[in-house]
Protein backbone atom coordinates (compact mmCIF):
# COMPACT_ATOMS: atom_id res chain seq x y z
CA UNK A 1 0.00 0.00 0.00
CA UNK A 2 1.06 3.56 -0.63
CA UNK A 3 1.70 6.05 2.15
CA UNK A 4 -1.05 8.65 2.47
CA UNK A 5 -0.08 12.19 3.45
CA UNK A 6 -2.99 14.41 4.49
CA UNK A 7 -2.55 18.18 4.15
CA UNK A 8 -4.88 21.19 4.46
CA UNK A 9 -6.79 21.71 1.23
CA UNK A 10 -6.87 25.49 1.04
CA UNK A 11 -5.57 28.84 2.19
CA UNK A 12 -2.33 29.94 3.76
CA UNK A 13 -1.98 26.74 5.73
CA UNK A 14 -1.92 24.77 2.45
CA UNK A 15 0.56 27.15 0.83
CA UNK A 16 2.90 27.07 3.82
CA UNK A 17 2.67 23.29 3.99
CA UNK A 18 3.54 23.01 0.30
CA UNK A 19 6.48 25.42 0.84
CA UNK A 20 7.72 23.48 3.88
CA UNK A 21 7.80 20.16 2.01
CA UNK A 22 9.15 21.87 -1.14
CA UNK A 23 12.12 23.24 0.80
CA UNK A 24 12.88 19.65 1.79
CA UNK A 25 12.77 18.23 -1.73
CA UNK A 26 9.21 16.93 -1.61
CA UNK A 27 7.14 18.59 -4.24
CA UNK A 28 3.48 18.73 -3.23
CA UNK A 29 1.11 19.92 -5.93
CA UNK A 30 -2.54 19.98 -6.73
CA UNK A 31 -3.62 18.25 -9.89
CA UNK A 32 -6.64 18.76 -12.12
CA UNK A 33 -8.63 21.97 -12.02
CA UNK A 34 -8.37 24.64 -9.33
CA UNK A 35 -11.51 23.37 -7.69
CA UNK A 36 -10.67 19.70 -7.74
CA UNK A 37 -9.28 18.34 -4.47
CA UNK A 38 -6.65 16.07 -5.97
CA UNK A 39 -2.90 16.18 -5.55
CA UNK A 40 0.40 14.43 -6.04
CA UNK A 41 3.80 14.21 -4.38
CA UNK A 42 6.95 14.51 -6.47
CA UNK A 43 10.56 13.78 -5.53
CA UNK A 44 9.67 10.56 -3.75
CA UNK A 45 8.14 7.18 -4.54
CA UNK A 46 5.09 5.60 -2.94
CA UNK A 47 3.46 8.65 -1.35
CA UNK A 48 -0.05 9.89 -2.14
CA UNK A 49 -1.34 13.35 -1.32
CA UNK A 50 -4.76 13.64 0.33
CA UNK A 51 -6.27 17.12 0.50
CA UNK A 52 -8.51 17.57 3.54
CA UNK A 53 -10.12 20.28 5.59
CA UNK A 54 -7.57 21.09 8.33
CA UNK A 55 -10.11 20.31 11.02
CA UNK A 56 -10.68 16.78 9.70
CA UNK A 57 -7.02 15.76 9.68
CA UNK A 58 -6.94 14.76 13.39
CA UNK A 59 -9.94 12.47 12.87
CA UNK A 60 -8.38 10.86 9.77
CA UNK A 61 -5.10 10.31 11.62
CA UNK A 62 -6.93 8.79 14.57
CA UNK A 63 -8.91 6.48 12.29
CA UNK A 64 -5.73 5.47 10.47
CA UNK A 65 -7.10 6.46 7.06
CA UNK A 66 -3.99 8.59 6.49
CA UNK A 67 -0.45 7.71 7.61
CA UNK A 68 0.85 11.25 7.92
CA UNK A 69 -1.02 14.49 8.41
CA UNK A 70 -0.34 18.19 8.85
CA UNK A 71 -2.49 19.98 11.40
CA UNK A 72 -2.28 22.16 14.51
CA UNK A 73 -1.22 20.63 17.82
CA UNK A 74 -4.28 22.31 19.36
CA UNK A 75 -6.70 20.37 17.16
CA UNK A 76 -4.94 17.06 17.83
CA UNK A 77 -5.10 17.58 21.59
CA UNK A 78 -8.71 18.72 21.48
CA UNK A 79 -10.11 16.11 19.11
CA UNK A 80 -8.14 12.91 19.72
CA UNK A 81 -8.81 11.34 23.13
CA UNK A 82 -5.54 10.15 24.69
CA UNK A 83 -3.79 11.67 21.66
CA UNK A 84 -0.22 10.71 22.59
CA UNK A 85 -1.12 7.02 22.24
CA UNK A 86 -2.81 7.55 18.89
CA UNK A 87 -0.40 9.80 16.98
CA UNK A 88 3.24 10.78 17.10
CA UNK A 89 4.72 14.20 16.44
CA UNK A 90 7.25 13.92 13.63
CA UNK A 91 8.15 17.55 13.11
CA UNK A 92 7.01 20.95 14.29
CA UNK A 93 6.85 23.00 11.14
CA UNK A 94 7.38 26.53 12.41
CA UNK A 95 4.24 28.17 11.05
CA UNK A 96 0.57 28.42 11.94
CA UNK A 97 1.53 29.53 15.44
CA UNK A 98 -1.43 30.33 17.64
CA UNK A 99 -2.04 30.30 21.37
CA UNK A 100 -5.14 28.96 23.03
CA UNK A 101 -5.75 31.46 25.81
CA UNK A 102 -8.36 32.57 28.32
CA UNK A 103 -9.42 36.19 27.99
CA UNK A 104 -11.69 38.39 30.11
CA UNK A 105 -13.01 41.93 29.62
CA UNK A 106 -10.27 44.55 29.87
CA UNK A 107 -12.47 46.41 32.36
CA UNK A 108 -12.01 43.58 34.88
CA UNK A 109 -9.07 45.32 36.50
CA UNK A 110 -9.38 43.00 39.50
CA UNK A 111 -8.68 39.90 37.39
CA UNK A 112 -5.16 39.11 36.19
CA UNK A 113 -4.56 35.47 37.19
CA UNK A 114 -6.49 32.20 37.28
CA UNK A 115 -6.77 32.66 41.05
CA UNK A 116 -8.57 35.95 40.36
CA UNK A 117 -10.78 34.31 37.76
CA UNK A 118 -11.78 31.63 40.27
CA UNK A 119 -12.62 34.20 42.94
CA UNK A 120 -14.54 36.35 40.45
CA UNK A 121 -16.47 33.26 39.29
CA UNK A 122 -17.51 32.46 42.88
CA UNK A 123 -18.78 36.00 43.46
CA UNK A 124 -20.43 36.10 40.02
CA UNK A 125 -22.35 32.91 40.70
CA UNK A 126 -23.63 34.25 44.05
CA UNK A 127 -24.70 37.50 42.40
CA UNK A 128 -26.28 36.16 39.21
CA UNK A 129 -27.45 32.68 40.24
CA UNK A 130 -25.61 30.96 37.41
CA UNK A 131 -22.05 29.97 36.70
CA UNK A 132 -19.64 32.31 34.95
CA UNK A 133 -19.81 31.40 31.26
CA UNK A 134 -16.72 30.88 29.14
CA UNK A 135 -17.30 30.72 25.37
CA UNK A 136 -15.08 28.30 23.44
CA UNK A 137 -14.88 25.57 20.87
CA UNK A 138 -12.00 23.85 22.70
CA UNK A 139 -14.08 22.16 25.37
CA UNK A 140 -11.71 19.37 26.33
CA UNK A 141 -8.54 21.49 26.53
CA UNK A 142 -10.20 24.27 28.49
CA UNK A 143 -11.95 21.91 30.90
CA UNK A 144 -8.75 19.96 31.65
CA UNK A 145 -6.76 23.16 32.06
CA UNK A 146 -9.23 24.71 34.48
CA UNK A 147 -9.59 21.48 36.45
CA UNK A 148 -5.80 21.31 36.90
CA UNK A 149 -5.80 24.95 37.98
CA UNK A 150 -8.63 24.37 40.45
CA UNK A 151 -10.97 26.95 38.93
CA UNK A 152 -14.61 26.32 39.84
CA UNK A 153 -18.03 27.90 39.30
CA UNK A 154 -17.63 28.33 35.56
CA UNK A 155 -19.53 26.80 32.67
CA UNK A 156 -18.44 26.37 29.06
CA UNK A 157 -20.75 27.60 26.33
CA UNK A 158 -20.11 26.44 22.81
CA UNK A 159 -18.99 29.04 20.31
CA UNK A 160 -17.88 27.96 16.86
CA UNK A 161 -17.04 31.42 15.57
CA UNK A 162 -16.86 35.14 16.43
CA UNK A 163 -16.12 33.99 19.97
CA UNK A 164 -14.58 37.34 20.95
CA UNK A 165 -17.97 38.97 20.44
CA UNK A 166 -19.82 36.80 22.96
CA UNK A 167 -18.95 38.95 25.98
CA UNK A 168 -20.33 42.12 24.46
CA UNK A 169 -23.40 40.17 23.32
CA UNK A 170 -23.91 38.97 26.91
CA UNK A 171 -23.83 35.28 26.00
CA UNK A 172 -20.58 34.72 27.93
CA UNK A 173 -18.47 36.50 30.55
CA UNK A 174 -15.09 35.27 29.27
CA UNK A 175 -13.66 33.45 26.25
CA UNK A 176 -11.12 30.71 25.58
CA UNK A 177 -9.94 31.01 22.01
CA UNK A 178 -7.01 30.89 19.61
CA UNK A 179 -5.05 34.07 19.07
CA UNK A 180 -1.85 34.83 17.20
CA UNK A 181 -1.42 38.59 17.45
CA UNK A 182 -4.08 39.50 20.02
CA UNK A 183 -5.53 42.16 17.70
CA UNK A 184 -9.04 40.72 17.66
CA UNK A 185 -9.04 40.40 21.44
CA UNK A 186 -7.99 44.03 21.88
CA UNK A 187 -10.54 45.22 19.34
CA UNK A 188 -13.21 43.47 21.39
CA UNK A 189 -12.02 45.00 24.70
CA UNK A 190 -10.62 41.72 26.03
CA UNK A 191 -7.31 40.92 27.74
CA UNK A 192 -5.45 37.67 28.26
CA UNK A 193 -5.22 36.18 31.76
CA UNK A 194 -1.50 36.24 32.57
CA UNK A 195 -1.27 32.55 33.51
CA UNK A 196 -4.16 31.64 31.19
CA UNK A 197 -2.17 30.29 28.25
CA UNK A 198 -3.64 26.83 27.75
CA UNK A 199 -1.61 25.67 24.79
CA UNK A 200 0.86 27.07 22.26
CA UNK A 201 -0.04 25.53 18.94
CA UNK A 202 1.73 25.32 15.60
CA UNK A 203 1.40 23.35 12.38
CA UNK A 204 2.93 19.94 12.96
CA UNK A 205 3.53 16.81 10.92
CA UNK A 206 1.93 13.86 12.74
CA UNK A 207 2.24 10.12 12.16
CA UNK A 208 -0.79 7.91 12.77
CA UNK A 209 -0.09 4.93 15.00
CA UNK A 210 -3.29 3.15 13.97
CA UNK A 211 -2.78 3.27 10.16
CA UNK A 212 -1.58 0.07 8.52
CA UNK A 213 2.20 0.04 8.46
CA UNK A 214 3.31 -2.64 5.98
CA UNK A 215 6.74 -2.92 4.34
CA UNK A 216 5.87 -0.48 1.56
CA UNK A 217 4.47 2.16 3.89
CA UNK A 218 7.46 1.84 6.20
CA UNK A 219 9.88 2.16 3.28
CA UNK A 220 8.08 5.28 2.08
CA UNK A 221 8.11 6.66 5.64
CA UNK A 222 11.89 6.12 5.87
CA UNK A 223 12.31 8.02 2.61
CA UNK A 224 10.13 10.89 3.89
CA UNK A 225 12.05 11.06 7.16
CA UNK A 226 15.37 11.13 5.29
CA UNK A 227 14.14 14.09 3.22
CA UNK A 228 12.73 16.13 6.08
CA UNK A 229 15.69 15.59 8.39
CA UNK A 230 18.24 16.39 5.67
Amino acid sequence: MRLKLGVPSKGRLMEKTFDWFGARGLELRRTGSDREYAGAVGGIEGVDLVLLSAGEIPRELDAGRIHLGVTGTDLVRERIPDWARRVEEISRMGFGQADLIIAVPKCWIDVDTLEDLDAAAAAFRREHGHRLRIATKYHRLVREFLREAGVADYRLVDSQGATEGTVKNLTAEAVADITSTGDTLRANHLKIISDGIIHRSQATLFRSKSASWGDQERAAMTAVERKISA
Partner: peptide, 16 residues
Protein backbone atom coordinates in the same frame (compact mmCIF):
# COMPACT_ATOMS: atom_id res chain seq x y z
CA UNK B 1 -9.63 51.40 31.54
CA UNK B 2 -12.09 51.83 28.68
CA UNK B 3 -15.64 50.81 27.83
CA UNK B 4 -17.42 48.46 30.19
CA UNK B 5 -18.63 45.28 28.51
CA UNK B 6 -20.33 42.13 29.72
CA UNK B 7 -22.76 41.03 32.41
CA UNK B 8 -20.36 41.45 35.32
CA UNK B 9 -21.12 44.99 36.42
CA UNK B 10 -18.83 47.83 37.47
CA UNK B 11 -20.24 47.49 40.97
CA UNK B 12 -19.15 43.84 41.10
CA UNK B 13 -15.64 44.77 39.99
CA UNK B 14 -15.46 47.53 42.62
CA UNK B 15 -16.78 45.11 45.23
CA UNK B 16 -13.97 42.66 44.47
Amino acid sequence: VGPHIGLRSEAEIEQR
